[in-house]
């Protein structure tokens, strides 16, 4: 009763993207990240001059002088759809609102916001994937060991999990970064090292259920070792909760990177990231709405999309086994 009335009520408020929209959003952002060099950049993708074809985007050996020389010869060329690099300054259009020339405007240094947004997707997507990858690997290892062996091993691993969990994750990450120095790789590792506990607890709980099932005994009776049983017979059954938690964690990792970059612990200033864009936008918060809108929306869409997918998988989850 209570459940159905809750459901009815919550139908009014925004519940996240539909699965299709969420997958589309993630695919879109992933495509932006993957194809950033040909979507946004100030070097032509292809040039054609006197029967020769050049690909300046993909070849650093073609210098800017050479490009200018070719241009003056009247070369035929294809520019990226956003013809600005995230590190080139347009001094004629500093802090310009969205216009035909800069579709999402420019920031205080005259850098094109759309270009930064596209390159920032690279940082966010890769932080999400690598950090969650680390978290899942660690979580599966610790969770499977604790759940499969039980007893004193389980006790030890569970205390370790609690020890890591009892620190507020964000401050633990800040502390780690304070020691090792801010960089994109350190963020990935720090977020991964603090995020594995949730996965470990899920895998542990599933593992304790699975290890009592007869096919585990059957595998042992045919001579399989503990390691083999864990990898081959136990972990595949924990996949569903791991996938659900991974997609939530992906959103969390993107958010963590944005927050860290916002606080200045993230990527160096030369690299564009959604968090550092928001941080820069603070200085112009009185009027530069386009500076916060673009990265803010991107973060919202990415996190919400991962969240919606996780929600959807966990809702669909009856146990099949």
């Amino acid at each position: 009763m209570r459940h159905s009335s809750l459901k009815k009520k919550s139908a009014v408020i925004f519940q996240g993207f539909s699965p299709r929209a969420a997958i589309f959003a993630i695919a879109f952002l992933a495509a932006l990240a993957m194809f950033a060099p040909i979507i946004a950049g100030d070097r032509p993708i292809a040039m054609y001059c006197d029967g020769e074809v050049f690909f300046p985007t993909f070849s650093d050996s073609i210098s800017d002088e050479k490009i200018d020389e070719l241009k003056s010869k009247g070369a035929w060329l294809v520019m990226p759809p956003i013809p600005y690099s995230p590190s080139s300054f347009d001094f004629e259009a500093v802090l310009s609102p969205p216009s035909k020339r800069h579709i999402l405007g420019t920031d205080g240094d005259g850098v094109d916001v759309a270009s930064k947004l596209v390159w920032g997707a690279r940082v966010s997507m890769s932080v999400g994937i690598v950090a969650v990858g680390i978290a899942i690997a660690l979580g599966c290892i610790f969770g499977a060991i604790a759940g499969y062996f039980g007893g004193i091993v389980d006790w030890a691993v569970s205390r370790l999990i609690e020890a890591v969990m009892c620190f507020p994750a964000f401050f633990l990450i800040l502390t780690i970064l304070a020691f090792v120095g801010p960089s994109i790789y350190n963020i990935m590792i720090a977020v991964g090292l603090t995020g594995w506990t949730q996965v470990a607890r899920l895998v542990r709980a599933e593992g304790m259920r699975i290890r009592e099932l007869p096919f585990i005994d059957a595998a042992r009776a045919s001579g399989a070792s503990d390691l083999r049983i864990m990898l081959r017979h136990l972990l595949p059954h924990t996949l569903r909760p791991v996938i659900v938690s991974a997609s939530f964690a992906m959103g969390g990792a993107i958010l963590a990177e944005a927050a860290l970059s916002f606080l200045g612990f993230g990527v160096p200033p030369s690299v564009a990231s959604w968090g550092s864009m928001l941080s820069d936008a603070q200085r112009y918060s009185g009027f530069g709405w386009w500076l916060t809108l673009a990265p803010g929306s991107a973060i919202f869409i990415a996190v919400m999309a991962y969240h919606s997918i996780g929600e959807r998988i966990s809702e669909s989850g009856g146990r099949d086994a």
Binding site: L213, P214, F215, D217, A218, A219, P236, H237, D320, A321
Partner: peptide
């Protein structure tokens, strides 16, 4: 239990 002694995956 032949139903559960085989790994379903």
């Amino acid at each position: 239990e032949p139903m559960t002694s085989l790994n379903p995956v």
